[in-house]
Amino acid sequence: MRASPDDHLTIGEIIRRTGVPASALHFYERKGLIFSERGSGNQRIFSRHMIRRISLIIVAKRLNIPLSHVAEVFTTLPTDRAPTHKDWQRVSRIWKRQLEERRRAIETLEQELTGCIGCGCLSLKACLLLNPDDALEGRGPGPVRLQEPNVALPDGPSTRQAT
Rank of each mutant, 00 (worst) to 15 (best):
M1S: 10
P5Y: 03
D7Y: 01
L9V: 10
L9M: 05
R17K: 12
G19V: 04
A22S: 15
F27S: 07
Y28Q: 04
R30Y: 06
I34L: 04
F35G: 13
F35S: 14
S36H: 13
R38E: 10
R44Y: 07
R44G: 09
S47H: 12
R48L: 09
R48Q: 09
I51C: 11
R53F: 15
S55G: 13
I57M: 03
L67K: 04
S68W: 06
F74I: 02
P78I: 00
T79V: 13
D80W: 00
A82L: 08
K86D: 11
D87L: 00
Q89I: 09
R93F: 11
R93T: 14
L99N: 07
L99Q: 10
E112G: 07
G115N: 03
G118W: 03
G118D: 10
S123C: 12
L124D: 14
K125D: 15
A126F: 02
L129D: 03
P132S: 12
D134R: 09
L136K: 03
E137D: 10
G140M: 10
P143T: 05
L146R: 01
P149A: 01
L153E: 02
L153A: 05
S158G: 15
R160I: 13
Q161F: 05
A162D: 14
T163M: 08
T163E: 09
